Computed example of a mutant assay.
Amino acid sequence: MKIIVVGAGILGVSVTRSLAMAGAEVTVLDRWATGGGTTASTFAWVNANRKPGAEYFRLNTEGMSEHSRLAGVLPGPQAFRRSGSLHLADGLDEPDLTLNVERLRASGYPARWVGRDEARRLAGDVRIPAATTAIAHFPSEGHVLPGVLLDNLVADARRHGATLGVGEAVGVEDVTGGAVVTLADGTRHRADRVVLATGRWTRALAAGSGYDVPMTTEVRTGSSIVGLLGFVRSPAVDLRCVVHSRRLNLRPDGDGRSVVQALDLNRRVDPSAGASRAIAAEVEARFAELVDVPGPAEIDLRVSVRSMPADGMTMAGPVSDGSNIHVLVTHSGITLGPLLGRLVATELVTGTPDGSLDTFRPTRFAGPRPPAGELRGPARLGEQ
């Protein structure tokens, strides 16, 4: 079976590797180098913490397990770290955090309350804010180093015979017995199946070819899909787990580096201009407040744009009944990438649908739909 995967982010590379391992003749195409899209600007927290709905929660818990399994077999430096996460709540956040902990515990998800001293030992060079009234620890969660994970997946995909190519897909169409991808230079590539793993660009690519893939795509100030990440070059921080607080979230990034985000600042970001000096100064000040390391902060700020299906849920499957074109899009790309890659590859090679993905088929949007309002962006403690 010959398959073309369009998009070389975490989803595209994951499904490419799994397809190659299953014996398919697979080529992945991207306009940039691997990981040049959404994967390059992700907080990379592996979790099922605030995943609405039983099926989506289950899928994310399985995604967490898949990272642990993959870490044991994937060659290269370790990319997944089961570091756990801490949520530091103040008086405003505590009631909501308490409800979340109770809900997760009822589902069998590891969650416990810890005191300040234990939280400090778990976190490393982090000051527990004076306003903190409750601290929850989620020990089964973790994070990945996205660049390392992508490099490892690409190397393993190539080792199993996958081909990586550079090319901008501008069209895709069903043909008898297969599908065709058209590139910007006019080249047409035919395959038995095509997988669109093109993140936030999926809707436009599919629409140009007559397919409806409902997504939230408006990139503007205040949009729910626009966010901001800070990549801390210095000072070096002994950060041992993912930390969430009202004013700033922290994630280890290897070798003393860290990644930060301030959810309440997202709505002020102009995606066309990037972060203003005022926003940059605010991020630096919050970092200095939360991290117990001397020295001025050097933080590179990067605007991130999330891949968001219209209802917030993953899409995995053919664009329409009987189509040879499959879509793979999710908001939880880092947590779900390896799992979805394996499940979708198995479906394509065997021709047998996986029941665990039934809830997430793109065809759920078929037929008349009421106008959908824009999804709310992440704002509460522990949201992404």
Rank of each mutant, 00 (worst) to 15 (best):
I225G: 02
D151A: 14
L97W: 03
V148D: 05
W32P: 13
G322L: 09
V144G: 01
P271N: 10
V327S: 01
N60L: 06
V73F: 03
F365H: 14
H244Y: 07
I135S: 08
L229Q: 02
V46W: 01
A191C: 01
R342L: 07
M308H: 06
A8S: 05
P235F: 00
V101H: 02
A162E: 07
R277P: 10
A33P: 10
T133G: 06
R361W: 13
L205C: 09
L229S: 05
G367V: 02
R306E: 08
R188L: 02
T42H: 05
L86I: 14
D300P: 01
W201C: 14
D255L: 14
V259C: 08
D192W: 00
D185V: 00
T198R: 03
V242C: 04
I334F: 07
D358I: 07
D321P: 11
G377R: 08
A372M: 11
G36A: 12
P371W: 04
G108F: 04
R267V: 01
H326K: 06
E347F: 09
L153K: 02
T176V: 15
T163N: 10
H67M: 10
G23H: 06
A379I: 15
D255C: 15
E284K: 02
T176N: 15
Y56M: 13
R361T: 10
V126P: 12
V181I: 10
G37A: 04
S245D: 08
G382W: 06
A179L: 01
V293D: 10
G53M: 08
H143C: 06
G367S: 03
E173P: 02
V195W: 01
E347S: 01
E218K: 14
C241S: 05
G351P: 05
A44D: 04
L228P: 12
T335P: 04
V283R: 00
R376K: 15
L328H: 00
L153F: 14
T350I: 03
R251S: 06
S304V: 14
G333E: 12
A316K: 06
P252F: 08
F43A: 13
T221N: 12
L239W: 02
E66K: 08
W113Q: 02
R190L: 12
L150E: 09
L328F: 09
L150W: 07
S304L: 09
D300K: 13
T187C: 13
S234R: 13
L150T: 14
P214F: 09
A24I: 12
V172P: 14
V260M: 08
E383L: 03
P318C: 12
G208C: 08
N152L: 14
P368S: 07
E347Q: 15
A281R: 12
E55R: 15
H160V: 05
L205S: 03
R31F: 15
T363W: 11
A280W: 10
L328M: 11
A134R: 12
I225T: 00
A134M: 11
A134P: 12
R267K: 11
D311F: 02
E66C: 08
E62I: 10
L99K: 13
G274N: 00
G256I: 10
T221H: 13
